[in-house]
Computed example of a mutant assay.
Amino acid sequence: MTYKLFALLIFSFLATESTLKADHSVASLALNTKNEAHTVCKSFYDQLDAGCYKLPNYESFELAFEGYETFKCAGKIKNELLTIVDFSLSSTKERMWVIDMAQHKIILQSLVSHGMNSGKEFAHSFSNEINSFKSSLGFYLTGETYIGKHGLSLKLDGQEYGVNDKARARAVVIHGASYVNHQLAKSQGYIGRSQGCPAVPEAITKTLIETIKNQSVLYIHHSSRKEQLRKELTS
């Protein structure tokens, strides 16, 4: 199933077999909804308790927030957490955030890898194709855990047709990796890269996975995405 995140005017498609056609009256309603959603989102962001962490960039947060709210309205969230990965940032930066949406609080920030064919220090190329060894952008719901070659790992279900819906077939999962660490980032200017998985430091793997498993939202962002989604909405 695929469907548009039109209710809150997120600029993406989540999976449906039919496409909604908006007329002028619906477009006007959507604009009002978008303005209201922006106000709610900005208020949430401004009141977010970052604690000892840094806030994510607002651009990535806004899209992630709108998507989260849409999933929530659709009854698809069981675990009220939002994980944001911002691949616009250098891999030497802690570009993953886990946000407790009920408590309005950031509870974790971490390094995270991108795919080896997506780029070196910065990710710039993305794919949904098997054996591409690239990262896929967009919205995911977290699935079940399992023990694999990287130890405890977390399966992901891509929610955007043609963008990340092959995550299971590609075995794109969250797992720990020794090549994701600050020492390597400092010595060579970038962390190690995966075959497309958002891999994290081994020291936080268990805590992260046990926290976000079982249908929480993961959003993987890049600065190119907003314009891409805007084009998709108007095409």
Rank of each mutant, 00 (worst) to 15 (best):
K213H: 09
Y53Q: 10
F126Q: 00
L82P: 04
N164I: 00
A30T: 10
A7N: 09
E69W: 08
L9R: 14
F6V: 10
N35R: 15
S194N: 08
L82R: 03
G119R: 05
D49Q: 15
G75C: 01
N214F: 05
I99Q: 02
V40W: 09
H124Y: 13
A167Y: 00
S132A: 07
S110E: 04
L111C: 02
S136N: 02
I147T: 10
V217T: 09
Y58I: 13
L141T: 00
Y179S: 06
H222L: 08
E160T: 04
D46E: 15
S132T: 00
V26N: 06
M96Q: 11
Q188I: 13
Y219G: 08
I204E: 09
H150V: 00
L14Y: 01
F87Q: 06
Q188T: 13
K76A: 04
S118Y: 03
A15W: 03
S127T: 02
Y53A: 09
T92Y: 04
R168D: 03
S88K: 09
A22H: 13
G143P: 06
S216R: 06
Q183C: 02
C41D: 10
L48W: 10
A27E: 13
Y219E: 07
F122A: 03
T70I: 04
K72S: 13
F61K: 07
D49S: 14
L218Y: 00
Y146G: 01
T207F: 09
V163E: 05
T19S: 10
G138V: 00
F11H: 11
T2S: 12
K134L: 01
R168L: 07
L20Y: 12
A15M: 07
D100N: 13
T70S: 05
S12F: 03
L229S: 14
Y68R: 03
L184I: 09
F13N: 10
K76Q: 08
L111E: 01
K213T: 04
S18G: 06
I209G: 05
Q228Y: 14
Q103W: 01
A167G: 02
R95P: 04
Y146L: 04
T19K: 12
C41S: 15
R168Q: 11
T83V: 12
P201F: 05
A7G: 08
T39D: 15
A102D: 07
V180N: 04
H182W: 07
L31W: 14
G138A: 02
F133K: 11
N131T: 06
I147G: 00
V180T: 03
V217F: 03
E210W: 04
G115C: 05
F6L: 07
S28V: 12
K206S: 12
F6H: 07
Y45K: 09
L229D: 13
E202N: 14
L208W: 08
Q159A: 08
T234R: 14
F122H: 15
M116F: 06
G176D: 09
I84M: 06
Y161V: 10
D46M: 13
V112I: 06
K155R: 11
